[in-house]
Every structure is written in C-alpha cells, then in structure tokens.
Design a protein around this nucleic acid. Structure first.
Lengths: 224, 224
DNA sequence: CCAAAAGTGTTGAGGCTACACCCATGG
DNA sequence: CCATGGGTGTAGCCTCAACACTTTTGG
C-alpha cells in the first residue's frame, strides 16, 4: 500500500477475506504468496485497504478481485481485528470477511502485482501467515461452523444440483464430525430445504446417486 | 469531535454503544440528549471517536464512561455501519457495541459537555435518533435476542441472587414471548445453570420466592 | 460375481409442551 | 379470609440417535 495515495488519506482500514471451498471433502482456504515487503515470501489471506468512497463490503470485493480474480462472491463481515501493532507500517484496523465458493467455477489470476502464487490450501495444513493471518483464519473457521447452521452458504457451495453424499461430506468436513447417512437424509428431506429432481448421477462408477436442489423458499435456522 | 485533534488524525472510526437494562420487566436502552450540532436536541446512542492508540473495545468503554459515567461494563461488538454519508462531517465508520447492566447498580452523570440529559428509554417508545441511531438500535435488539441464548448476559443482569419469576420476566421482555412457569423452572433447574441458595425473598407482599444464583461452571448454548 | 457406494425404516429414549392444584403471605 | 403471586408433577407427543440389510453399478 502506498500511504500517500489520496484515496487512503485518513484511513487505516484493512479488509481481509477468508475464502473457503470444499475440494473432495476437504475444506480449503484461499491463500496468496506475498512478493512484497513486509512479510515477503509468506502466505497471506487476500485483502487490502478501504477507499474513502466505498462501502466496506464493496472494498473487500474489490480487493479480492484485484488480488485473486474472484468476483461475484457473497462476503459477510464477521470480526474486527484491532491490535495496535498488527501491521508494521501504521495503525490498521482489519475488518475480516468470510465467503465460500465452488472452486471449479472460478478462474484465479496467475500473477498480480502483490501475489505471485494463489492457491487453495487444506485448512489443516496452513503455514504461518503474514500479519495476524492465522488468528483471522481460526476465527473464520469458527464462523464458518456457525454459518453452516443457516444453510445459506450451502446454497452457495451447491448453486445447482448435488447429491446427498456430497452435501453430507461438506457438513462433515466443516464441522469435523461424522453423521449417520440415514438420519442425515431424513433430516434434510423432512426439513423441506432440498427438493428431489428425479435425476441421478454417477460420480464414482458405483451405484448412481439422486440429484437434489435447494428449496429457495425455505430458510432453516439449525439443521444439525 | 474536533477534527484537528491529533489523536483523531487519519481516523474516521466512531464507536457507538447500545446499553440495555430491564426495568420492571420492560427492556430499556440508554440514550443521551445532544446539546451540540449536528443533531442538536436529538436523542442519541452514546458514543464517540476512536483514538489512534487504543483498542476499539477500550475506546468504546472510554467514550461510554465520558458520556454517561458508566464503567465496569462488558461490551461486545456486533456490527459495522458504513454508509458513506452517515455522518455529515466526514467519512465515519461506526463500530456498534452492545452491553447490558443492572440499572440500579450504576450512577449516571448529570451533565456532560456533549449531553444534557441521560435516560433509560423503553425500547418500544424510542424517538427519532441522531445519525443512524435507530438502525443501530434495531440491529442491537436483534443481537440481544441472540445473545440471551448464551445466558452470559443474564449473569450480567443478575450478578447476585435472583428469583425465577424475575429471570423469566427478562426472557419474556427480551424475546417478546410468554413462557409457561412450570416448564421454565424445569428447564432452568435441569440445565444446571442456576443454583438454589435456600434463601427466599418477598418482593411483592405475596408468597416469598426462592433465590437462585448462576452456576459459573456452566455455559449453556441454548435454553429456550 | 464381487467390491463399493447409495438407498431405505423402525424402535427406544429423552426432551418438550400443555395443563390444574396447593401454598405462603399481607392486608 | 381472600386475593395475589409462587411453587410443584404428570401424561402425551415429537424429535433424535442408533442400528443392518438391500440395490445398483463397473470391472
């Protein structure tokens, strides 16, 4: 960040995004490798500074797009990080956002001014991050676990058709639990949030699985 | 706020507190009447600007104390308000905090530089507030309803002994519902979050009520 | 025909709601 | 002695968790 950029004048607000996806049942987070000081060479959560003339949500989306190429994503703010010395340059207050997406539906940038490499990293294998990134990530994972109760983020991960085993594996990987197949199916169907499409798909060469879609008319508070 | 105060340099962060109490079963919020422009004469939520050298939580507590005299209160941030023009003076981003207290245990200031009158106001009778105060308050009431699920704020409202009818009336006024007396009692006792002190008290000249205290070893997620 | 994943129903336990009567007190 | 609010128990319902076998497919 160039401190003298007039758009940054009088602001020390940083916007950080933790973007999750589920890749073959494994929860992953989007990281970029820094090629600038400070923290040159460290992995970092994507983010940047708010402009005077934009809303924080707009700023978070703009930075995410500039740094990673991702657009059309729903972000929600979940926490503020305000340690006095969290950034070595000046007092910065960090607003942390969370988002989820289907990794097969986005195209990531190859090179940007700030980041040389962009990658999905297994949340259980995340290295030491730039700034207070690990602390932000830990909070985001907790937030994700709470968000999944509302089923809204599931609609994002599965914008179209999906099978119940797929859906179950997302629950299991986010919540780090195992769920009985029969009870899971029962809860999903009786709650009314999914609709049988009467189609099937064969992902793995075994018995085909039924395809479902989410029922948009139905917002459930707590499934599990 | 004096814009040239060096402590405010490069910051446009405003801290607003919504402080709730329950007064005879009625949920009330703490408001102050402004005696400065802008919004001279309007009721407002207490708050002020963050200093460069303090954490946001510290700043919120400092402002609350300066404006109302309240100290020793637990505040938690619940939302950010960032409309570009929400303050007429400059771009201000508002971090909104929520807190609860026992109104009989605090002494409010009579006069301050900023506020001529401080008062507890029935949340159902709140007038038009300064800035985007009404929007902040509405969000805070929703937040309060979610917070009460954790029972932690109840420990704040009842730091010492309390009767079950008192506790029930707080639930009923915050959630705006009525609860069966027997079932409420059963849930509270079997959940283990309250402890019978074997003392009684007579608040209303009728049958004396048993006194309970909260069990600090017990944190419950959802009671009702 | 066999391995691997998907689909299906029942039962028992515990928690929730609904509901009516007795008790202690002050006036 | 009566009006008022506080305290107590039970029965039915529903939800949830536990659990095993059959079906479909590709190789």
């Amino acid at each position: 960040m160039r401190v003298n950029n007039p758009l940054y004048k009088n602001i020390g607000i940083h916007l950080t995004s933790t973007i999750f996806t589920v890749d073959k049942g494994v929860m992953k987070v989007l990281l970029i490798k820094r090629n600038n000081e400070p923290y040159l060479g460290y992995w970092a959560l994507p983010g940047g500074c708010l402009y005077n003339n934009e809303l924080v949500l707009e700023g978070a989306k703009r930075e995410l797009k500039e740094k990673t190429g991702i657009s059309d994503i729903e972000l929600s703010m979940f926490k503020v990080f305000d340690k006095i010395d969290r950034s070595p340059l000046k007092r910065m207050i960090c607003l942390a956002f969370i988002g989820v997406l289907d990794k097969d539906k986005v195209k990531l940038l190859n090179e940007t001014e700030k980041a040389s490499i962009i990658n999905w990293v297994d949340v259980k294998k995340v290295p030491e991050l730039a700034y207070d990134g690990n602390e932000v990530l830990d909070s985001a994972i907790n937030e994700l676990r709470e968000m999944i109760q509302s089923t809204e983020i599931l609609k994002t991960l599965f914008p179209k058709e999906f099978t119940l085993p797929e859906l179950q594996s997302v629950y299991e990987s986010i919540l780090n639990i195992t769920i009985d197949r029969r009870n899971f199916r029962k809860k999903m169907i009786t709650s009314g949030i999914i609709i049988d499409t009467n189609k099937t798909v064969n992902y793995n060469g075994k018995k085909p699985a039924k395809l479902y879609i989410f029922n948009d008319k139905c917002k459930i508070k707590s499934i599990l």
